[in-house]
Simulated scan of single mutants.
Amino acid sequence: MKKVCLLLANGFEAVEASVFTDVIGWNNLEGDGSTKLVTVGLRDTLKCTWNFTVTPELNIKDLNVDDFEALAIPGGFEEANFYTDAYSEDFLRVIREFDKQGKIIASICVGSLPIGKSGVLKGRDGTSYSLNDGKRQKELASFGVNVIPHKEIVIDRNIITSYNPSTAFNVAFTLLELLTSKENTNKVKRLMGFIK
């Protein structure tokens, strides 16, 4: 079983997390059955950007990176205190360990910012939220990342970044394809109604 760690910061966007749970879940039931997703957080209860409450399955202190093949990170809002958790040393340490082992790291929107802050994207290509005068892309660049501003999804070796919430499903499908195959991913896409 290929396990995906969905690493959640308080203040994350529920829609950006849900694409990973849905795509990996659909694959488990209707695709090749090879994937499982586990939610992980720094707190026993997390509040999403729009006040949806989530109970992660695993606390970050109990996380063993060796048990997982991939890491998924949804973005969130500063106003919902996303960066308090996302920029914490525990959160950044997990990112560094996944990268050190060459495992896939997939992020959506500002989920790329803790990846940048962790240092693993320094000198590499990436992107982040593209609107608001590029504020978040400038922040990503301040971490030494070569920001590709107008590309929806940027893949640099094992790291996937994207530039806003509209890319969420495509990031999740890219992750599934890297974990399984294009043929299997297209089967899941067809069953979910994304392709005919």
Rank of each mutant, 00 (worst) to 15 (best):
K2F: 08
K3H: 05
K3S: 02
K3D: 01
L6Q: 04
L6G: 01
L7S: 03
N10F: 01
F12N: 03
E13L: 14
E13Q: 15
V15S: 12
V15Q: 08
E16P: 14
A17K: 14
S18A: 13
V19G: 11
V19I: 11
V19H: 07
V19N: 06
F20R: 03
F20K: 05
D22E: 11
V23M: 09
V23T: 13
V23I: 15
W26N: 07
N27Y: 09
N28M: 12
E30R: 13
E30V: 03
G31I: 10
G31Q: 09
G31D: 11
G33F: 10
K36S: 13
V38Y: 08
V38G: 06
G41M: 06
G41P: 04
G41N: 06
D44K: 14
D44S: 13
D44M: 05
T45N: 13
K47Q: 09
K47H: 05
W50H: 12
W50R: 12
F52Q: 09
V54L: 12
T55E: 10
P56N: 11
E57Q: 15
I60W: 14
K61Q: 12
K61M: 05
D66G: 12
D66C: 03
F68Y: 15
E69L: 06
E69A: 12
E69S: 13
A70G: 07
L71M: 09
L71N: 05
A72Q: 11
A72V: 08
I73D: 00
F77L: 11
F77A: 13
E79N: 14
A80Y: 04
F82K: 00
Y83A: 03
T84Q: 14
A86L: 08
Y87M: 10
S88I: 07
S88G: 10
E89D: 15
R93F: 01
E97A: 06
E97M: 04
F98E: 04
D99A: 09
K100I: 01
K100A: 04
K103F: 07
K103D: 01
I105L: 05
I105W: 12
S107A: 09
S107H: 02
I108A: 03
I108P: 09
G111R: 11
G111M: 03
G111A: 04
S112L: 00
S112Y: 00
G116Y: 02
S118D: 06
S118L: 01
G119P: 10
G119H: 04
G119C: 03
G123M: 08
R124K: 14
G126E: 01
G126D: 00
T127C: 06
L131R: 11
N132Y: 13
N132W: 10
D133I: 03
G134Y: 00
Q137S: 02
K138Q: 13
E139A: 00
E139D: 08
E139Q: 08
A141K: 06
A141T: 05
G144N: 04
I148Q: 04
I148T: 09
P149Y: 03
H150G: 14
H150K: 10
K151M: 01
K151F: 00
D156L: 04
D156N: 11
R157E: 13
N158T: 11
S162A: 14
S162R: 14
N164D: 06
P165W: 00
S166I: 05
F169K: 15
F169I: 03
A172F: 08
T174P: 02
L175I: 06
L176C: 02
E177A: 10
L179N: 04
T180K: 03
S181H: 10
K182N: 09
K187E: 14
K189C: 03
R190D: 14
G193K: 15
K196T: 08
